[in-house]
Computed example of a mutant assay.
Amino acid sequence: MKSAFLSGCLMFCMSAAPAFAEWGFSGGQTPNAFIQTGDMTLELQCDRLRFAPVGYADSEDIVGKQSLSIRFMKNGSTEVGSFQAGQGNATLRIVDNYPVEVVFQDSADYQFVLDQIAANAVLNLSMADQDVSYGLFDLKGSGKAIRSLRSSCGSAPQAGNNTMEAPEGVVYCGGGQIKRQIEYLILDKAQGQWDAIVTVNGKTTRAMTAYSYFGNAEPPRGFVVALLGEDRSEFLVFKDGNKNWLEYGDYQYIQCN
């Protein structure tokens, strides 16, 4: 009986312990600070974070509720601050078939999150409405990685660069809870690998074109081009007769001009 109790306690303590691993930093087109364990990953980009929990069901739960509590702890048990990401201040979505991406509407909110991660010992990503954790991360070494991230993001081209000319052409409208207007333009002169720009609700980002449909897969009827955004967004453009549409995320956007 005592052995069974100790075994159960050990399993609980292990599940409640933060993930111990080293923080790292990766530069390039999409700079990011990250920590990765055998079954979870947290990635901090210039304007958003990505969290891959243990299971896909957790990703679905977070996006379905459109809420994630980001809690900062100075040790394993004392919470010193938090940020509730959800409708009204952030967009939560599943990207690359698994991780949850949190895009902050106000950059000041994200800077607060980065400040707290760098200053504290443990990060708890949990349900907003109850004390159930999706993942705990050790923050030792996060300060150095975040300093590198901020330095790189400060010199990196930003998605909303005002020097870009907004595209003029077919306008696509639609979406779910967040309505969007989307336009794109293929550039006459490529900027390195970026040969297109895409504007979503007035915010412009660079993109590269791909005229093959997911490698060797046979494209569906009407497929024209895929636009792969610098911010890792993906747009699929279609034209069939007089019908023009674009697919972005889980939604289809129909020509509206």
Rank of each mutant, 00 (worst) to 15 (best):
S3H: 05
A4I: 15
L6P: 02
M14Y: 08
G24W: 12
G27L: 09
G28A: 10
G28I: 15
F34M: 12
Q36D: 13
E43D: 13
A52N: 13
P53R: 08
V54P: 00
D58N: 15
E60A: 10
V63N: 01
G64L: 12
S69A: 08
K74G: 04
K74L: 11
G76R: 02
S77P: 00
E79I: 09
G81D: 15
F83M: 03
A85V: 06
A90G: 03
T91N: 02
I94Q: 00
V102Q: 00
Y110V: 09
Q111F: 14
V113M: 01
V113P: 14
V113S: 03
L114F: 05
A118K: 07
A121N: 08
L123K: 02
S126F: 07
M127P: 01
Q130C: 05
S133R: 12
D138I: 09
D138W: 09
L139V: 09
G143I: 00
K144H: 07
A145P: 10
I146S: 10
R147E: 15
R147H: 14
L149C: 04
C153E: 06
G154L: 07
T163L: 00
T163Q: 00
V170A: 03
C173T: 03
G174D: 08
G176R: 06
Q177M: 05
I178P: 04
K179Y: 08
Y184M: 14
T204M: 11
A210Q: 11
A210G: 13
G215K: 07
G215F: 03
N216L: 12
A217P: 00
P219F: 10
P219D: 05
P220K: 05
R221I: 10
R221T: 15
R221D: 15
L227E: 09
L228Y: 11
E230P: 00
D231K: 02
F235I: 01
K239F: 01
W245V: 02
L246C: 06
E247S: 09
Y248K: 03
D250L: 05
D250C: 02
Q252A: 11
Y253K: 04
Y253G: 04
